[in-house]
Write a protein that binds this DNA or RNA. Structure first.
Lengths: 350, 350
DNA sequence: TTTGTCAATCGTAGCGCTATGATTGCAAAA
DNA sequence: TTTTGCAATCATAGCGCTACGATTGACAAA
């Protein structure tokens, strides 16, 4: 039988939780200052005296102190994390932007939290929700089209939003990128300038990749205005050299007069190039090929590939700059949009 | 600098900090339960009664509650974040692994925090330090060679560490990958089997890319054992088609008898292929080419590229699996190593 | 001297949540 | 009846840090 032992014997021993080996308090103690001073030193070294600063620095070194960013994030209501949501990092374009951002942000001790939509708006919505629960310093999204729910969440949360890789639609906050229809237009103009009169656009996954679709539309429109023949040959699969080969072969069959093609991207163009080689079609003699992306192999092809370079790294750098400026307290102009433009590289495939 | 506008009317109002619009307390209040129950429901729905569960679910829905993962991470001493550190996500191999991990982890509401070393051990050390300050659920590193400081930090922190893309060295915790020297050996064996007797390895950035170096070494060793001629032609720049072209041209000049090459990766092989085309060298008639990676264009080349596929996605999937199992409380065998192997794809370039 | 100013430093109340141990209510066992 | 066992729920003490406001001390101005 157990007695009713409530409330008589005091048990001062309370529960404990986890433990971070060395905390800011330990550093403060060691350096003979208050925790506040340590915190201040860490955040704004110039605000503490030189002597205190060096003492603290020594203590940190000695104790091998690693700040707990999670605690800091909670206290400050904003973490040193930047959430970036792209269709997929397997795509070289986005990989380049992510890498460029990362390389700048890491110097500011900002972490990149990565998410993949796989071109799915629902997925994006889910990712944005999770991203927000990290109270990130900023959130970077790909493109301008999002679900209403996504837009609402973002609007309500007071997080700076940067939309990248697209311009010309309705933006939430800041946008950095270029006009994809202009890319298509540039490709068309270039081919026409080269004397081509029977054009086609070789498109991959146009139903999902909105930006590839915009490039395609720009191409077609410009060609039509110029009064030359133009067709779209497309495939639902993601852009690849294999798809490029298939598309060109299909295009040649359907359009015997074909003398110029623009491609979804350089992978497709590469496939088209190989297909020409297999079919003994001279490039650019009989057919001109224009790609998009200036991928790592494009200049080394035979013949080197004429392509349009979108400067994905500039997009990343500009995004990082905006974020850093925002964190430094600089109030950015609302609805700012930065056109990173693109460059047509005229090489020998056209 | 803001104006100092204080001092007239006394405001006994104490300080306030930030505000998350809807907190768990709000949900609890709305659902007429205690915050603990809401928390419990969120973490282990099966532990609360069905009625309470649905009430809470409704409250969450109604209030549009988004949990604060930062606060949760602090309280639980471990965040729902997985830190992954790779040389660069621009590299298609790592991009694939990252993407595969992400696609599994997102279903578990785990976030990927990305870091780039750019093949720099110092940088890696810095990244590991920052990563640890996020108290991640796990930390994933590329390769087995790290600085002593990195190793020490990792050892001291009680975070599961997974090293990927390499096997055969001294591992910290778990390792998932394959033996790169075996890749080189397989390439050599294959070329020899095809009747090639004058081999070369076309290597890019071998001084930094330790794994490419291992492949190279495996290639050379195997060739030597088999008694065939073997050379290494290398370039300090990162692997690219351009470098591949240069390397092959250099190799042909230095080794007129050359009849088989293995390459750092498929980009280099692609460049070699184009160089052969330019120099009218028949492939595989006069020269066999073996790549590494099975990149998106490799099967579509002309001729299609014989290459070795490393299954970077499997590495990612296995890593994700290990992490999820660990979080579910399953104690993993220490020093586990998973060999994801590789496949030689014999196509027409050899 | 007193007062004011300013830079440097400190004290402390949370940030929103989780995990521990306690408590409750009810059905089955004693 | 009382006890026990169990599932469901709750109360509460932090997790480690930041930022607000207060305090200190040194020096210039009055």
């Amino acid at each position: 039988m157990a007695d009713q032992t409530k409330g008589e014997a005091e048990r001062p021993q309370r529960r404990r939780r986890k433990m971070q080996s060395v905390t800011m308090m330990d550093v403060a103690e060691f350096a003979q200052v208050s925790p506040s001073t340590v915190s201040l030193y860490l955040r704004r070294p110039e605000a503490v005296s030189a002597s205190a600063g060096s003492t603290i620095a020594r203590a940190i070194e000695k104790l091998n102190y690693v700040p707990n960013l999670v605690a800091g994030g909670l206290a400050a209501a904003s973490s040193r994390a930047v959430s970036i949501i792209v269709p997929s990092v397997r795509n070289a374009f986005f990989a380049e932007t992510v890498a460029a951002m990362q390389n700048i942000l890491r110097k500011e001790k900002l972490q990149l939290i990565l998410g993949h939509t796989e071109y799915d708006e629902r997925e994006e919505e889910e990712l944005v929700k999770t991203a927000l629960s990290w109270a990130p310093a900023a959130i970077v999204l790909t493109g301008l089209s999002h679900s209403d729910a996504t837009r609402r969440m973002l609007q309500k949360a007071s997080v700076p939003v940067i939309e990248i890789w697209e311009l010309g639609g309705q933006q939430i906050d800041a946008a950095i990128g270029f006009h994809h229809d202009q890319v298509g237009a540039a490709a068309a103009k270039h081919l026409i300038q080269q004397g081509r009169r029977n054009l086609a656009y070789l498109g991959a996954r146009l139903h999902e990749d909105k930006r590839a679709k915009q490039r395609c539309d720009g191409f077609v429109e410009t060609a039509k205005i110029a009064g030359v023949t133009v067709d779209v040959i497309q495939h639902p699969a993601a852009a690849s050299a294999e798809v490029g080969g298939m598309l060109l072969s299909e295009a040649l069959q359907a359009l015997p007069q074909l003398d110029g093609v623009a491609c979804s991207n350089d992978h497709v163009a590469l496939g088209a190039l190989f297909e020409c080689e297999r079919s003994s079609i001279s490039v650019p003699g009989r057919l001109s090929i224009v790609g998009f992306g200036d991928l790592s192999f494009s200049a080394a092809c035979n013949p080197p590939l004429t392509t349009i370079r979108p400067s994905g790294d500039l997009i990343g750098r500009e995004a990082a700059r905006l974020i850093i400026e925002h964190m430094a307290g600089k109030e950015p102009e609302p609805q700012i949009s930065i056109d990173t433009r693109f460059t047509l590289l005229h090489r020998r495939s056209s």
